[in-house]
Design a binder for these strands. Structure first.
Lengths: 195, 195
DNA sequence: CGCGACGTTGATTTGCCTCAACGATTGTGG
DNA sequence: CCACAATCGTTGAGGCAAATCAACGTCGCG
């Protein structure tokens, strides 16, 4: 199993003793398409690393409409970060659904915090990851504020071609904050231009 | 000056030797209303802690319209995180303007990284801060996806009363991603309801 | 084959924008 | 201390992007 440690903590070297500790904290989780990793209102205390497959996290608003926060494919971490990192509560506000059969590795927030304290390497690794994600989030907010739906779609298929090809259009629409009908019209417009 | 260390790194205790190191890395910066801390395309390598005053970071789009990413008041950190934490470049994509006379303390990203490596307390502190900010950003994305302009405005004045009272309405509009005219109409509607 | 899931298309509505004009408030120089 | 300009907020008219509502193709699969 230590090969998965090498995959998750890319470029970090560990002693045998450290590997034992790390492996003891990680749990393998398999999910099939359609299964849920998390539902709104449940207690959240785990982080999940995606080894294979694809998941989506989404929020269901007052009128029942779904809004996708994040897709996760190989190499990504996913959880309900508002519950896990926020100060208000640890109840999930979102759902996480498997949209392609997946193998995940989970670790509890509590264990992860301990690893960060006991192994500086892990702390720096986490800081790097968080900083990168931070920049990405700023970017997404910026795009939501400045770009039209069409531009956001073009950016999306450019930035995440691997996701675009593996999820349904209505999921992409939901991620972009538009309806499937609007996305359909945008796609039509784009294809007619490029002929 | 060590009182400012206590303010910035809330609840952390340091030895005298550590205080000397920390103080040597922090630079005091004073800004007057209207002055810029950062402009697009300049090289970014500093983080800024806000001791007093108020600043805004904004992005200027192709048509010259401004979009506010963040306000910062006492206790907040501000910088161009896309440039500082992103992988693409270290050139600023945004502007940071002082909108109320301010006293800041700056530290370079490079020095801060060293502090994180040399002093686990700082690393841990940074992780906590990042995680909290992470949750906030998810929340903002969620609000942008799910709420109407009116709801976002109500949330804003609820979540940031201290900011609401110290910035101009057109700044709030820009933060919410709407025009000043729209905000004006929303305010009108709200006040007529509450009479 | 027939059903359900998915995507597309059309008609209409709506929330917010744009452009334009006009009060209210604040600051500054005579 | 007033006059004036600049800044800021409000209001109105018209327009547009995307939502809503509804119907219809198309594809895969039991």
């Amino acid at each position: 199993m230590s090969s998965i440690i090498a995959e998750i903590f890319t470029k970090l070297d560990f002693s045998d003793a450290e590997l034992v500790v790390l492996e003891s904290k990680l749990k393998r989780v398999t999910l099939q398409k359609g299964e849920f990793l998390l539902q709104a209102d449940v207690h959240v205390d785990q982080l999940y690393y995606v080894h294979t497959g694809c998941l989506r996290s989404y929020f269901s608003d007052a009128s029942g409409k779904e809004h996708i926060l994040q897709f996760a494919v190989k190499g990504w971490w996913i959880s309900d970060y508002i519950a896990l990192f926020g100060s208000d509560s640890s109840k999930a506000v979102s759902y996480i659904e498997c949209i392609q059969d997946a193998i995940l590795y989970s670790i509890s927030k509590h264990d992860f915090d301990r690893l960060c304290q006991d192994m500086p390497k892990i702390a720096y690794f986490h800081i790097r990851k968080m900083e990168g994600a931070f920049a990405s989030f700023q970017n997404r907010i910026l795009e939501n504020l400045t770009l039209t739906a069409k531009e956001r779609y073009l950016n999306f298929i450019d930035a995440y071609p691997s996701i675009e090809s593996s999820v349904k259009n209505y999921h992409i629409a939901s991620y972009l904050g538009i309806t499937t009908e609007s996305l359909s019209r945008i796609r039509k417009e784009i294809s007619s231009h490029s002929v």
